[in-house]
Design a protein around this nucleic acid. Structure first.
Length: 241
DNA sequence: ACCCATGTTCAGCT
DNA sequence: TAGCTGAACATGGG
């Protein structure tokens, strides 16, 4: 169940495992468990929708994809963990997640992570230049440019910026691109707060909505862009150029 | 009961 | 060869 904000919550929830030793590791992940057993966790990091449990010599990289979940100090019934980490007094389980060992995570550029304090707006604009023929719905979901943006954030951001999802980047005014980027970062942190409060869906203006909360017009649901992901938009507020 | 989805990769085809 | 489609992963909520 992950977009960038949910990964920050995950990191927060498991940060107390930092400094603790993995005394046993198992699960149906296709990794060499010997490489992580008896290692101490050095730090917990995130990049976009990726989680890194950093060990002295390598990192456990976890991606929850669409259906992934985790449990702390308990186990789910009727489903085996992809990765089970046993500590002296605690345990951590990941289900239906991609799990791999990544020796060097410096390939992940924190300037591209919308929730990182290293986020770089100018760098994102630069990356958009050569792909100006692509639709904004695709580029906003591009993890190399906006790591952490998922389909909910995409829809909410375009609604806030009053931009039609199928607009090509080259047809957007510079002010619109700035607005989209500003809203992406801003909404991601709002998403985080709503998610923590358990009120996320109450504050959706576009995603899963029938009516535009700005003008009352019907929202359109359409599979858009190369990615063919669902977009919800108001044809009155978000006019295609 | 069935459909759909906060995601991504990859095989296989044109 | 580039680009597209569908499959795969496999869960859970409406």
């Amino acid at each position: 169940m992950p977009e960038g904000p949910s990964l920050l919550i995950l990191k927060e929830n498991i940060k107390h495992f930092t400094g603790k030793k993995i005394i046993a590791a198992s699960g149906y992940a296709t990794i060499n468990f010997d490489e992580i057993q008896n290692r101490k966790i050095v730090s917990i990091k995130t990049w976009g929708k990726h989680l890194f449990i950093c060990l002295p010599k390598n990192n456990i990289e976890i991606h929850l994809r669409m259906f992934g979940s985790y449990t702390i100090n308990k186990q789910k019934a009727h489903i085996n963990p992809k990765l089970h980490l046993q500590f002296a007094k605690e345990e951590l389980n990941f289900y239906v997640a991609d799990v791999k060992l990544t020796p060097n995570i410096s390939i992940y550029d924190s300037a591209a992570d919308i929730m990182s304090n290293k986020w770089d707006t100018a760098a994102a604009k630069k990356k958009l230049k050569p792909i100006a023929d692509r639709m904004i719905c695709d580029t906003l979901a591009d993890q190399q440019i906006f790591a952490g943006v998922g389909n909910i954030i995409k829809n909410e951001v375009l609604w806030r910026a009053k931009v039609h999802p199928e607009t090509k980047v080259k047809d957007l005014a510079a002010t619109e691109i700035s607005s989209i980027i500003k809203h992406a970062v801003k909404y991601a942190f709002e998403f985080l707060q709503y998610k923590i409060a358990g009120t996320l869906s109450q504050y959706w203006n576009a995603y899963n909505q029938k009516k535009c909360s700005r003008c009352g017009n019907s929202m359109v649901k359409k599979y858009t862009g190369k990615g063919k992901r669902v977009s919800y938009f108001c044809t009155q507020c978000q006019v295609k150029k």
